[in-house]
Simulated scan of single mutants.
Amino acid sequence: MGHAGLYIEARIRADLDELWSRTQEPAQHQRWDLRFTEIALLPRADGEPQRFRYATRVLPFLTVAGTGVSAGERERPDGTRTSALRFASPHPLSLLAKGSGYWRYLPDGDGVRFLTGYDYRPRWGVVGALADRVLFRPLIGWATAWSFDRLRLWLERGITPERARANWLSELLVRTLVIVLACTGFGYGRLLRLTGPFAPLFFYATPLLTLVALSLALCAPPLSGTPAARRCLRTPPTRVRAPRLLRTLENR
């Protein structure tokens, strides 16, 4: 589609059937995937690919919706599984006009390599293309990776998507508070008074303490129960090709 397609991969220690269920059933999918607020299957005729409707709440008063078509291969000779989809949003405020993508499930020892590749065409002409390159594409790539790690925590450790989101918000709040306190020097005066005769030493050590606090807040790895996009692979290890299944949806 004329853009650098997005690629995300996570290795998840889980049963393949359970992973398939959590990703293919709309009620479960919408719980862990940050990109969607609602996913609903639409009626279909025998032999036709599955059509679906999706919606994303961008703001409390704004929801962007679209439709798509999907197909899956649950039983493949090599033991892997694949699903593919095409989607489009007619909403005038949706930067994403239409796109396509796939999921692959590759058994790997005691786990599964769960990966996606997808691309889309933005609307709004040159302005939309610039906004997509600078802001939206990096953001949607981060949201996909964050969601994959959230799914991993659910399957591997039983941390529900709702609990994982609360963990992430709590850790984000703590890091933000540390940054604000370090940058404003809030409380340093009281600490100087409490240190008494060691106040001069503390005063000269303040820049170092500030640097340490900022480094920890910005660079410390997330807690093990907090989802993080950085845990996912964002570049394919080898050149990948879209599955043939995706081409069967071209004219659907």
Results as ranks from 00 to 15, higher is better:
Gly72Leu: 13
Ala88Ile: 07
Arg35Pro: 01
Gly5Met: 14
Leu139Ser: 11
Ala65Glu: 11
Leu130Asp: 09
Val58Ala: 12
Arg53Leu: 08
Leu85His: 13
Asp46Glu: 14
Leu115Ile: 01
Arg175Lys: 11
Arg57Pro: 02
Arg11Tyr: 15
Thr226Val: 15
Leu135Lys: 11
Pro243Asn: 03
Arg193Met: 10
Thr226Phe: 05
Gly99Asn: 03
Thr63Tyr: 08
Pro222Ser: 15
Leu209Val: 02
Asp110Ile: 00
Tyr204Trp: 15
Leu181Met: 13
Arg123Phe: 08
Arg53Gln: 11
His91Ala: 12
Val178Leu: 13
Thr116Trp: 02
Gly5Phe: 11
Leu181Ser: 02
Leu194Ser: 07
Pro43Ser: 02
Phe202Gly: 09
Arg53Ala: 12
Ala10Phe: 04
Gln50Cys: 02
Arg133Thr: 08
Leu177Thr: 07
Gly109Cys: 09
Thr248Gln: 07
Pro92Met: 08
Trp103Val: 03
Gln24Ala: 13
Arg137Gly: 03
Arg165Phe: 09
Asp15Leu: 01
Val174Tyr: 10
Gly72Gln: 13
Pro90Ala: 13
Ala14Pro: 01
Trp154Glu: 10
His29Thr: 07
Arg35Ser: 00
Pro227Ala: 11
Ala4Gly: 13
Tyr54Asn: 02
Leu211Thr: 05
Ala27Trp: 05
Pro161Leu: 04
Leu34Ser: 09
Leu216Met: 14
Asp15Trp: 02
Pro92Thr: 05
Cys219Ser: 12
Arg31Trp: 02
Val134Pro: 04
Arg53Gly: 02
Leu245Asn: 05
Glu25Val: 14
Val58Trp: 10
Gly79Phe: 09
Leu216Trp: 15
Arg22Met: 14
Arg190Phe: 15
Val69His: 05
Leu233Asn: 11
Ala84Lys: 05
Tyr105Ile: 07
Arg163Asp: 06
Ala14Tyr: 02
Arg121Cys: 04
Arg247Gln: 09
Arg44Asp: 05
Thr160Tyr: 10
Pro227Phe: 05
Leu16Phe: 00
Ala10Met: 13
Thr210Ala: 15
Leu214Ser: 04
Pro43Trp: 06
Arg11Glu: 12
Ile8Cys: 13
Ala213Cys: 09
Pro200Gln: 03
Gly196Met: 04
Pro161Arg: 04
Arg239Tyr: 06
Leu181Trp: 06
Leu181Glu: 03
Pro161Asn: 07
Ser215Trp: 12
Pro243Tyr: 08
Ala27Asp: 11
Leu16Glu: 02
Arg86Met: 05
His29Ser: 12
Leu115Pro: 00
Val69Met: 02
Asp78Trp: 03
Ala97Tyr: 12
Ile179Tyr: 08
Glu18Gln: 12
Arg123Gln: 12
Ala40Asn: 08
Leu181Asn: 00
Asn251His: 10
Asp17Asn: 13
